[in-house]
């Protein structure tokens, strides 16, 4: 008997690989595409024995009935998904949209900062602000030219776009905070900043805007299980107390977040996780060898 009813429900319709580690999946879920709003996330299980991982919704297409996820292969689950999630395959579970949507307010001039993978979830917010009539300045940060993605997509919703790379191979040489400083110098009237990326980046983004008193919203992605407020695994420390990212967030005022606490808690399964990743890579390696050996054997003598 099954009560999961998830067989063949969430089909992957598009896949795009931005680099060796970053890939995009577009998944069919018409009802979610209708409901999704910028800033929300989903929880995915790629197979029945897998773990539940939260991923921010990078885009949604109400007409096509799809949502888009951008994923970085960092641990066992995301590496396995990179290997297995091909067009025409299905996710075991996909639930959402979760979390409180980002507030696209009255701000007239907005700084939208995305670092690495964070570029994806910032996009729907940038588009939302643009549609609301704001002047949108995009700042995108990548390690190098090869990892750059969606700069063109961003270009279409931004009035100004600054791309930063660590080695200067594309755009300006520097961190997103350097790009932010340029933008803030040029536009002292920025009302709001949205910054999404690795926790350490968001920490420095918040530090960059703090002296200017610019309201800065960050999107947090801590370890979660259910994503509905039931387990408390995603609790984060703010000046105002403990909040759960899944139901009280994922967006929070960056000037209130204790990022050191967040980074420490993100690492709480690191040891188990590293072992799992190592085991997975070992098994992949063995599989490749096996496939290679079989191919060898299959060759006509």
């Amino acid at each position: 008997m099954t009560t999961s009813g998830t067989e063949s429900k969430y089909e992957i319709v598009t896949r795009e690989d931005f680099s060796d580690v970053t890939y995009l999946l577009e998944v069919r879920h018409p009802r979610m595409a209708r409901a999704a709003k910028p800033g929300q996330f989903v929880i995915v299980m790629s197979h029945a024995e897998g773990e539940r991982i939260p991923l921010t919704i990078a885009d949604f297409d109400r007409e096509k009935g799809t949502i888009t996820l951008v994923i970085q292969a960092v641990g066992k689950t995301t590496k396995e998904m990179q290997r297995d999630c091909k067009v025409g395959t299905f996710l075991h579970a996909l639930v959402g949209p979760m979390g409180i949507p980002s507030h696209i307010g009255e701000a007239k001039k907005v700084l939208c900062v995305g670092g690495g993978l964070g570029v994806a979830p910032v996009f729907p917010q940038a588009r939302g602000f643009k549609e609301a009539g704001a002047y949108v300045i995009g700042v995108l940060g990548f390690r190098n030219k090869d990892l750059v993605f969606w700069d063109d997509k961003f270009g279409s919703v931004c009035d100004e776009l600054i791309v930063c790379t660590d080695d200067g191979s594309a755009g300006i040489k520097g961190m997103v905070t350097d790009g932010m400083k340029l933008a803030i110098e040029k536009h002292p009237d920025i009302d709001e900043c949205i910054a999404i990326g690795p926790p350490i980046m968001m920490k420095f983004c918040a530090a960059t805007t703090r002296p200017h008193g610019i309201k800065t919203m960050v999107s947090l992605n801590p370890v979660m299980v259910d994503g509905t407020g039931m387990c408390g695994g995603c609790r984060v420390k703010l000046d105002s107390g403990i909040k759960f990212a899944c139901v009280d967030g994922p967006d929070f005022d960056g000037h209130e977040v204790d990022f050191d606490d967040l980074m420490s808690r993100l690492g709480r399964y690191r040891e188990v996780e590293q072992k799992a990743t190592a085991r997975f890579e070992e098994s992949c390696h063995m599989r490749e060898e096996f496939v290679a050996a079989s191919a060898e054997e299959a060759k006509p003598a």
């Binding site: 429900k9 579970a93 994503g227």
Partner: peptide
């Protein structure tokens, strides 16, 4: 299920609808 009740999992009411 024998009684005819349908179950829809992965459905967060409030947020999906």
């Amino acid at each position: 299920i024998d009684l005819g009740i349908k179950f829809e999992t992965d459905t967060l009411v409030g947020r999906l609808f």
